[in-house]
Design a protein around this nucleic acid. Structure first.
Lengths: 233, 233
DNA sequence: TTTAAAAAACTGGTTAACCAGCTATAATCT
DNA sequence: AGATTATAGCTGGTTAACCAGTTTTTTAAA
């Protein structure tokens, strides 16, 4: 297990070095937005790494919108300037893995906005979707069973109704890590689940009524326990 | 160009189908958290697609925390239950590409929180970093030059000082798309840049003073134009 | 029968050769 | 010379064979 972590961190290190070198290259060659990067083969030879390593690094930079690969043509510098490119690459290399506290902090921020948007924008289909997630949660939790999964699906259903695909994506990104941490630290015990049923219902009703402020307030109530937990950890 | 989009959407479609099939498989075989998925080779044969397609689909599910690949061992179902797995896969398949409005909406939300956190948590090094970004912006903008890049680097420097790696990552993710859209729609003209210098300075001073509420207020002032633009588009 | 050692099979990752399509150069024609 | 076509080489993507570990099965010993 320890070995695996080592290997992984090594690969991460290699990838970051390649990303840094690509950044240097863009500066060195004065590549402007739209210009073509050297081919993957040339880069792998120049940097003395495998082509798949180069591809992974390019993939990551493509994820962050700095490069754009076009099949049978080349990899191109995105339509942002050299200055922004340098700054962003430095930031990407500096990125740390998210800790639990930052995840919960972010989740609360996202959801308090999401629930307001959902109250404003939810369609009839969204309401049906949220309701069925609510029912599934109630059925599990009322029996005293663990309902962490149903809980989060309810919240994801609301995110889906927010009409904001960026927020929805971010919620999807942080949800699994939150689930695993909840299980690890036993954040949600059974007593919490029972009281949460009514809180969920209140949130749903506010969304259904189209009242964004009420929805936010009800969600805040629901997050109260989580709030305390997050800032006491 | 049109062809390229078609090809890309085809690949996306194939990947989504594989993701859906992996989801079905997990249900069919009743795979619990920690269980091993069939090997990439078997999946590619079973689904009648290439192994690299399977790998990409697994990569995406790994990004969203649903699977975990371990070298020379196998791909494992993450430590979330079957119910959450099904819900999340459905959500992932339903995800849309972010539109400009959702990007700006999200950015404003993130930054108003980030600036408060930065005021509370910034180190001396953070302050130096933010200051140098501020100076670079001022130098460009005061000459009437385009300073979109320096503007966003200033904001990213604040995100870096927030002490929340999740928020920092999200800012990095949306920034390049915002830059390109700004350029496309000419959101930031020169007159805006000039007045923004003082607004940036005010934000910086509030962070330096460690006053979260003031920092948020000053950022809100800075976002006023953006606010209007976003909701009039 | 139980345990330990050895070997065979299998795993995700890597590599190098190959592919279809794009691009720039060269050759041809007007 | 200028425009057009043909050609050669280069591109990211795909494929199949290979690699170094892991995991399971088999074998041998107690």
């Amino acid at each position: 297990m320890k070995l695996e972590v080592l290997i992984k961190s090594d690969n991460q290190e290699v990838q970051n070095q390649i990303i840094a070198k690509i950044g240097e290259l863009i500066n060195l060659k004065n590549l402007e937005p739209g210009d073509k990067l050297p081919s993957e083969r040339m880069l792998s030879e120049k940097f003395e790494v495998s082509r798949s390593n180069v591809r992974e690094a390019i993939n990551k930079l493509e994820f962050y919108g700095l490069l754009k690969s076009i099949p049978q043509s080349g990899t191109f510098v995105a339509d942002i300037g050299v200055i922004a490119m340098n700054g962003m690459i430095a930031d990407i290399l500096r990125l740390e893995d998210p800790d639990f506290k930052s995840l919960v902090e972010t989740r609360i921020l996202l959801e308090l906005k999401i629930v307001k948007l959902a109250a404003l924008r939810r369609t009839k289909e969204d309401l049906i979707h949220i309701k069925s997630a609510l029912d599934a949660y109630e059925e599990k939790a009322s029996q005293g069973l663990d309902a962490v999964q149903e809980d989060l699906l309810f919240h994801l259903a609301i995110a889906n109704a927010s009409g904001n695909s960026t927020l929805n994506t971010f919620m999807l990104k942080i949800t699994p890590e939150i689930i695993t941490n909840f299980k690890k630290y036993h954040v949600c015990d059974d007593s919490l689940s029972l009281s949460a049923i009514d809180e969920h219902k209140a949130v749903y009703e506010a969304i259904k009524a189209g009242d964004p402020q009420l929805a936010k307030d009800k969600m805040k109530v629901h997050f109260k326990a989580l709030y305390q937990y997050c800032y006491n950890i």
